[in-house]
Amino acid sequence: MKITGYRTLSSRHEWHRAVGDINGHITDAVTDVPILLIDTDEGITGVGMGSHSDIARLFPAIEGEDPRSVSVLFDRMLAQVFKSGHAGATYGGIATIDAALWDIKAKAAGEPLWRLLGGRDRFIPAYASGLDIALDDGQLEAFYSEFADRGYVAGKLKGGFDPDADLRRLRIIDGVFRRNTSKPGLMLDANESWQVKQAVRYIGTLEEQIDLLWVEEPLRRWDAVGHARLSNAVRAAVATGENLTGVEQFRPLFDAGAPDVVQAGAVWGVTHLLRLATVAASRDLPVSPVGYNANPAVAHAMSAIPNHLTTEVQGVRFATGINVDHQFTDGGIVLSDAPGAGITIDVDAITAAASTADWSDPAGPHVRPERAGLRLVLDGVER
């Protein structure tokens, strides 16, 4: 089997709610969902989701190769961009190709990807995440109630600006999930908006009244020493890593004794997650993927690793023309039992719903405020 070519297209995901975090939000959000189709000479097409970054520059590393050699092809793509480096958006392109190759490999074997990777159970524990900083209290309760109806017992709030507001909203989530458990899992995601002492004060204020399972991205992603200091100062676990591209970028955090929960962006792909999980397991650390909806294939990898903790799910519906044969029930994800990753694409439907907006919206969550990490008081008012 040989790789013969590729096609790219983008779907349009209408979230039917505002999405964002402390760094900004998009009202009534519509986002682009990049899709990659890789063709082979045996008629098997692989589907990848995540990013179109540098696909044309990366493709020569795999063209004409056997797509089933996924791990080696991953390293060939890294070598292809050796001089300029693979960090950032380029790693997203590598990961999207990687997901499509794993899809081909599983389809060729006639097995679902989770079984090909060595998984035993197609159920994946998960938690709900609303990207919810712009939702009012009623909308917040409605979002998490849909997940509670599906048996979920844990949720993650976007916050970090006003502890009184976060406490009130965490209690709303707690109340919703108490229909399923007496001790819901509550997480708070600050999206790199604090420095160490701000984080200690803020988390300490919350922990006087509520139990947090973890606090996510409290500091800048590269602050290994700061994460270790923070972990020693609060009860909650410290979770970070979703924006690190490549296992080698985790080395300083591991060497410093942080984080407590190793996170990986789903957008960085299957092979990245498998390799990172192995390194984390050598340190007895759990792994938790972030942003499952951006690249659902990564959930299959979680079936095959022993230190998977839980996976972030941001919605139970996908973009137009993207059909994902996964179910959201019993507090998790039930993976497809069909060959491949369980993702099929309706090109006609996607063409009919051309995207008009994306995450590059200047008011959106990818723009860091100038005063992030420099607020003097914790009352939600910028001074």
Rank of each mutant, 00 (worst) to 15 (best):
A228W: 09
I3E: 05
D211S: 11
S129R: 00
A148D: 03
G48H: 02
L78V: 03
R7I: 06
E111I: 11
D284S: 11
V377I: 15
E65S: 14
G151Y: 12
Q263I: 08
I343Q: 03
V381W: 14
G155C: 07
L309W: 09
L273G: 02
V290P: 05
S69E: 13
S231P: 07
L131G: 06
G291S: 08
V215E: 01
D41S: 04
D211V: 13
S231D: 06
R229Y: 04
G331F: 02
D189K: 10
T271Q: 15
T344K: 05
K107D: 07
P163K: 01
R68Y: 06
D103F: 05
A354M: 12
P296V: 09
L273T: 11
S53M: 13
F147A: 04
G204L: 11
P252L: 06
V33K: 05
Q314V: 01
V347L: 11
G159N: 07
L116Q: 09
T205M: 11
G364E: 04
V367W: 11
G159L: 09
H308S: 07
P369D: 06
D21N: 15
Q263D: 06
R12L: 05
L378V: 03
G226D: 06
E217T: 06
A352L: 08
I104T: 09
P163D: 00
V287N: 06
R171W: 12
T90C: 13
G5L: 04
S51D: 09
E248K: 14
G50T: 01
I173K: 01
F328C: 00
D189R: 10
Q198C: 02
S71G: 12
V33I: 13
I26F: 02
Q327A: 12
T245S: 13
L101D: 04
A341M: 15
D325K: 00
V238D: 03
W222I: 06
V47R: 02
F318H: 13
E207Y: 12
T205V: 00
P125V: 04
N191H: 14
Y127K: 03
F177T: 01
K83M: 11
A301F: 06
P252N: 10
Y91D: 02
D255N: 12
N191R: 02
G160Y: 00
A341E: 01
